[in-house]
Design a protein around this nucleic acid. Structure first.
Length: 751
DNA sequence: GGAACGTGTCATAAA
DNA sequence: AGTTTATGACACGTT
């Protein structure tokens, strides 16, 4: 059974009774699956089936009115919509703000999308459609300030969204958020304001009106500064939403279940701290800006690369990737030779350069809302929002887990921050990945390959290890190898081939050596039948040829047919008197000529291919001179060595081909691993975002004895290994005494 | 004419 | 010890 300890933590902090049944009754998918995007386990159909009831019917009425926590919502929304996500988020923020405004807020851009609230049932269709609707809304509701989404932008978003769908891991997240957003909007428009819970409505308004800073994109949307009354309590939906957006696991493997009483104790005056939630939540959201920004920069760059790959891919005959960004990246490397360098640079920028820049990598259209959000943030929380951006903007990724430096000292990064187990990992992993990518670029192979792509990758010329050995050439070589093998085993055409291969117009006589090498007259023929002469069954054929093609050397006296005879074969070969015999001579190997010259009574095939016993037996049958025996032995030796050389070369070639194949395979594996690494990095990033969000949320709701919020610059939450949560003071400020320094609260609980 | 390639041959080592 | 096989090196012809 799933534990909802995390619920307990949050809900107890905000003074809301936990009703797990409400969650369970909401027919929500398991938090783990929704949030973590184990989604990948779902097929698209399954997912739509999964989200169907929720999207169609919305949350149960009991929990339906929560439009709050836009930031938390956006933690999930469009998480994988990288570059365009910023724009989409801007639009979402805008829409949220507008949704909150209809109550009469001046400056509302106009009527909110009716469709989004009423088309929940229709969203069960293909995700493309759903998003298409979104995009229509997006285009229609584009905010004057930041919503100048062009058709190109929308197309880009759509492409990336489809890409996310292909990625598998992203679609659920997206759809979940999408669904959630629909639900929220729907509730906002329909019954959200009719809710009798005035406090909740007020809270929602505040939450909706505070400067919205997209936790993922870092974009801020200038919303109207609310009355900023105290807003502490969250509805169950808010908590659910927050939890879902924060914790990936329902069983709270990372955060032990909280004890309600202990947590309540830890947050005295929790419920009515004036200006609490807005001032805390907004900096919370703002704080997420920079870390998200950093990582999103990286992610955006990845997305861009994927886009490039996609574009390149779309033009190529073979669709190299059907899956992940890594694949896209890989294909990008392979298919777009010009791009790798840019990607490389981009990666470096994202990982290194981005650490020192806040939004520099983003276009102006993104900076705009961010800046606006920042200013609004200062307005809302003048006492603790200062330097937030600076702090996180200059913090590397490893600092994402550090307690929020909500106050002052922008560069006070040191502090008693919590250790960041994932931060270092992420940094290292990113560095490794970058190095891997660099390596990949250096090696000229595509780094990332989806498992799905593996078959496709086989045809991926991007490996470009050896363009000459493309699968076609490989197969052809294999075919030739096999053919040669088969021919060697079949032995059918062997002997005729022997004649072709072995016989040129030469003889071995020293005088004839100039003709050596004529063997290669028919390379093709010999290539196909090179091993055929191993077949003894064909040995009888050669005598026939010998007799047919008479050699003028035969005219020589046996005594004159000394193997060392200088002139006879050569003269005959070059005489040109008898063209037919000359042609025939050219088909004879030197050894054949020698054998003829020496009047060897059996064929060279026999000489070469007969087993030793039979060969010796054959020799015993004839009265052969020593010269003849020597020639026969040489013929046999050379013949065997000739075959051996052919086999050796064939083996060598096969070895080369196999090695190339192995290299290809290893590169595929490497690419696959790299792609998996990228996926893991994404997961880690998401986890960190969620954990950070929860941290900030929890911390922001802590109150001291006087009901005042704790200063993030002075205190921090620390998670104990035993599951306890401690409020610990930060490093003491040199000038200012720490009144609550000794204060130490333990919120508690056990798993 | 020279490079690349294919082939045969030799020398040598190992089986 | 002789034979077979494997392989590097070389030479030569062909393209």
């Amino acid at each position: 059974m799933r534990s909802f300890g995390t619920f307990t933590i949050l809900l107890s902090l905000v003074g809301v009774r936990v009703d797990v049944d409400t969650y369970l009754g909401s027919q929500l998918p398991p938090l783990r699956e929704i949030i973590l995007g184990q989604s990948s386990a779902y097929t698209q159909t399954q997912f739509h089936r999964l989200r169907g009831p929720w999207a169609g019917h919305g949350l149960p009425p009991k929990s339906a009115g929560l439009e709050g926590l836009p930031g938390a919502r956006r933690l999930l929304s469009l998480d994988r919509l990288r570059v365009p996500r910023a724009r989409v988020s801007a639009w979402l923020v805008h829409r949220d703000a507008e949704a909150a405004v209809p109550a009469g807020q001046p400056g509302a851009a106009g009527p909110l999308q009716d469709g989004s609230g009423g088309d929940g049932g229709a969203r069960d269709g293909a995700p493309e459609q759903g998003f298409g609707e979104e995009m229509e809304d997006l285009g229609a509701v584009a905010a004057p300030g930041n919503g100048d989404l062009t058709k190109e932008d929308i197309d880009l978003i759509d492409i990336l969204w489809r890409q996310d769908i292909d990625l598998g891991a992203g679609r659920e997240i997206f759809d979940y958020s999408h669904r959630q957003k629909e639900s929220e909007v729907d509730k906002e428009l329909s019954d959200g304001r009719e809710r009798g819970d005035s406090w909740r409505s007020a809270g929602n308004e505040v939450l909706d009106r505070i400067p919205l800073v997209d936790g993922e994109t870092g974009e801020s949307f200038p919303a109207q500064v609310p009355g900023a009354e105290d807003q502490t309590a969250l509805s169950l939906e808010e908590c659910l939403r927050l939890l879902e957006a924060t914790f990936p696991f329902g069983d709270n493997s990372e955060f032990p279940a909280a004890d309600v009483s202990a947590l309540s104790e830890a947050v005295p005056g929790q419920s009515r701290a004036p200006g609490g939630p807005p001032s805390l939540l907004s900096p919370l959201l703002a704080e997420t800006e920079s870390p998200f920004d950093l990582e999103q920069q990286w992610q955006d760059l990845m997305s861009i690369m994927e886009m490039q790959a996609m574009e390149v891919n779309s033009t190529s005959a073979e669709s190299l990737y059907g899956g992940s960004g890594g694949d896209l990246l890989a294909s990008n490397y392979s298919l777009a030779p010009g791009t790798p360098i840019n990607q490389n640079v981009s990666l470096h920028q994202a990982s290194l350069g981005s650490c020192s820049q806040d939004f520099s990598l983003f276009s102006s259209d993104m900076e705009s809302p961010s800046m606006a959000g920042g200013s609004a943030l200062l307005q809302l929380a003048p006492d603790n929002s200062t330097g937030l951006n600076g702090t996180f903007g200059s913090t590397n990724l490893s600092g994402i887990f550090f307690p929020p430096q909500m106050n002052g000292t922008a560069n006070e990064t040191a502090g008693p921050e919590l250790p960041d187990p994932l931060g270092g990992l992420l940094d290292e992993a990113m560095l490794d990945e970058i190095s891997l990518m660099d390596l990949a670029i250096e090696e000229g192979f595509n780094p990332v390959q989806a498992s799905q792509l593996e078959e496709e990758f086989d045809s991926d010329s991007g490996l470009s290890l050896d363009s000459g050995h493309s699968p076609a050439s490989l197969s052809s070589s294999e075919a030739s190898s096999s053919s040669s093998s088969s021919s060697s085993s079949s032995s059918s055409s062997s002997f005729s081939e022997e004649g072709a291969v072995g016989y040129s117009s030469d003889s071995e006589n020293v005088d004839f050596e100039e003709a050596e090498g004529a063997v290669g007259y028919q390379p093709e023929y010999s290539k196909f039948c090179r091993m055929s002469y191993q077949d003894p069954a064909q040995l009888h054929y050669l005598p026939y040829l010998e007799h047919v093609g008479h050699n003028h050397t035969y005219n020589m006296a046996p005594g004159a047919l000394d193997p060392e005879e200088p002139k006879a074969p050569g003269a005959g070969k070059k005489s040109g008197k008898e063209k037919p015999s000359e042609l025939l001579d050219k088909q004879l190997s030197r050894d054949e000529h020698r054998a003829r010259a020496m009047k060897i009574p059996f064929t060279n095939d026999k000489i070469i291919n007969l087993p030793v016993e039979e060969f010796n037996e054959l020799l015993s049958k004839y009265q052969l001179s020593e010269a003849q025996l020597s020639l026969i032995r040489d013929i046999r030796r050379r013949g065997k060595n000739k075959m051996a050389a052919q086999n050796c070369r064939k083996r060598k070639l096969d070895t080369i081909l196999n090695l190339e194949r192995d290299v290809e395979e290893l590169q595929r594996d490497k690419s696959k691993l790299l792609r998996e690494k990228v996926e893991f990095l994404k997961s880690i990033r998401q986890m960190k975002q969620k954990v950070q969000s929860l941290y900030q949320e929890v911390f922001g709701r802590l109150r001291d004895e006087q009901g005042r919020p704790y200063s993030p610059s002075r205190y921090a939450l620390q998670y104990g290994s035993d599951g306890s949560v401690l409020l610990i003071p930060r490093a003491p400020a040199p000038a200012e005494p720490q009144p609550r320094r000794q204060e130490r609260k333990q919120k508690d609980r056990r798993k």
